[in-house]
């Protein structure tokens, strides 16, 4: 407890920015706690951490922490983060977004940041709804459920964020929940240590809107639902498909080594600085074309 208190004092802007804006039972505080513990565990200095967010409930997270913090526009956090990272590669740039922020208005930036494999840590807090604006449906609202703009049941189908960013080219893809906090600490650590675009989807909840509209009970009840439905990836491997029906996997889903954008661009800089025209060996050309994967 003393250690916890020391961390709070060290990392939070306790003298200015509290009380916070989040509702009772919100998962964002759990995500924030996990984030701080991870930065601490990795021994990162506060000066080298840049925390970037978009708009929404999760977007309010950076203001409370004593890092270099940037609260951008709705959906565009990854674009600002890309600029920061490319301009000052030694900085540890962490981006925090909500599901609407990252996959609706920011969906294009999400897939392109993944495709470029920019060395960023992207945390997507998925509570299946737009919380701040009053419970409207998001790209992760499950089909058939209610939202304040889907009063007759949601007609659309949800994104699987993890598969989306995996297909787009992210180096590391993980999923955790606000219930499995120890795991979340580990996933954040893996993501921050990874060179390349690393995404952690955090399954969260919104008792105020999503929970209320869909009779999911209070925060405790929806966290119990997470405990009952999450299956660790290691265990899921040993389970039959019918056993996995209705469950979701948590843990590191994808971890692959690919050159990140910064190291690729460094090659470009080197060629440009040498001033030698870029010529490709004809045999290399066919190899490059073949490596362009189309299924």
């Amino acid at each position: 407890m003393n250690e916890e208190r020391r961390l709070i004092y060290h990392y939070l802007r306790h003298d200015k920015k509290f009380p916070h804006v989040w509702c009772p039972g919100c998962g964002n505080g759990i995500v924030l706690g996990s984030l701080i513990r991870t930065v601490h565990a990795l021994g990162l200095s506060k000066d080298e951490v840049v925390l970037v967010s978009g708009i929404g409930c999760a977007g309010r997270l950076p203001v409370y922490v004593d890092f270099n913090t940037l609260h951008t526009t709705h959906g565009r956090a990854l674009t600002f983060a890309t600029g920061i990272k490319l301009a000052k590669p030694h900085l540890k740039v962490i981006v925090i977004m909500g599901d609407g922020d990252a996959t609706a208005i920011g969906g294009n930036h999400l897939i392109h940041a993944a495709r470029r494999n920019v060395d960023l840590t992207a945390i997507i807090v998925n509570n299946n709804i737009y919380g701040m604006t009053g419970g409207q449906s998001s790209p992760t609202t499950p089909h058939g459920l209610r939202a304040s703009t889907s009063p007759y049941g949601h007609a659309e189908h949800a994104f699987d964020i993890a598969r989306l960013v995996e297909a787009a080219g992210a180096s590391l893809v993980a999923r955790g929940t606000i219930y499995h906090v120890n795991l979340l600490d580990k996933l954040f650590q893996r993501a921050m240590e990874k060179v390349g675009f690393a995404v952690v989807e955090v399954i969260s909840h919104c008792p105020t809107h999503f929970g209320k509209l869909n009779f999911l009970g209070d925060a405790v009840e929806s966290m119990r639902w997470m405990a009952e439905h999450a299956v660790a990836v290691e265990r899921a491997k040993k389970m039959r498909p019918e056993e996995l029906q209705g469950k979701f996997r948590i843990g590191v889903l994808v971890d692959r080594d690919m050159p990140d954008y910064q190291s690729e661009y460094e090659k470009v800089r080197k060629r440009a600085m040498e001033g030698v025209p870029y010529r490709i060996d004809p045999q290399e050309i066919s190899k490059m074309l073949e490596s362009h994967q189309i299924y």
Binding site: V52, L70, T72, T73, R76, T79, F80, A81, T82, G83, I84, K85, L86, A87, K88, L91, N108, H109, H112
Partner: peptide
């Protein structure tokens, strides 16, 4: 970048980083 919104976003990010 992927569009002009992203372009100016990245520009602002780089400028905040001092470039």
């Amino acid at each position: 970048m992927e569009d002009e919104i992203a372009s100016l976003g990245a520009v602002i990010g780089a400028s905040l980083a001092g470039v």
